[in-house]
Design a protein around this nucleic acid. Sequence first.
DNA 1: ATGGGCCTGCTG
DNA 2: CAGCAGGCCCAT
Length: 316
Amino acid sequence: MPELPEVEVVRRGLEPRTVGRIVESVEILDARIIRRQAGGADRLRGALTGTRLTAVARRGKFLWWRLADADGQDTGEALVGHLGMSGQLRVRTDDPLSTPADSAGPASEGPASDPHRHRRLTLHLDDGSAIDLLDQRLFGGLWTSPLEAVSDGAVAGLGSPDALIPADAAGIARDLLDPATDLSAVARRIRGRRAPVKSLLLAQDLVSGIGNIYADEALWAARIRFDTPGARLSQRKVLELLRAAREVMERALEVGGTSFDALYVNVEGRSGYFARSLSAYGRDGEPCERCGTVLRRAVHQGRSSHFCPRCQRAAR
DNA sequence: ATGGGCCTGCTG
DNA sequence: CAGCAGGCCCAT
């Protein structure tokens, strides 16, 4: 559930608080959060200790920091973060190196009232602040990845200084907030596939950043049912769908993203307000805002889909 | 292309 | 106490 707008809220929060800072130490409370790190904890510490964070960039749901050594030289790799479905990156300005939570044992065993109960990793910075990665379900992660040139030569992502991208994010398509995204080309690729259009919206190698919530919202806005084959849609209709997806994510970003509870928050731990603006997701049993028909929920490819049976007609 | 696994906490 | 939430990875 952090999807594109929520990750962008986090990126914007991290930018002023972390860029220019040097990592003094890396505290790993649960090694599973760095399971994608080649070489494990030693390699991560080696890459980060004494290293300066020089930019925070994002493509789709992938975030990364650019890194420079003590001489100001680019290290050639990035620190990549992904929030999975329950990850949070929080910045603490007061960083007592050992917090009470440390001695309380495993991060998952603190009291429910402890906001840092699910702290998995902390980067201690040279200005006395710290970046905490909290993640209840551990689908997220933090790891380093070598930089490589993007294939189209444009700036790699929002916040990126150039066309270099972490290798582990190179297979991710540009997202709908990226000015270098070619909407017509994305639409043509969607129309070239017979898979259900919702699966195509969720395919991060076609267009990135869309998750289950915004897919359902975009399909509702464009009046397309989730199981319509991509190839059945006109170019015009797919463009309408992509523009609807972009618009709903832009509106969500304006109000700080979608949050159902304290799990999905900005770097200060605050929730966004877009949940109250959702028209389809989680609204099964409620009337459609357009036609009043009761919205339904269907299980589609193992995930729930919310739709209006009248506005979003079935493909035959 | 498709489905299972990773995870934990909450719900029925 | 089983089921559900779901992004991404991986095996089939």
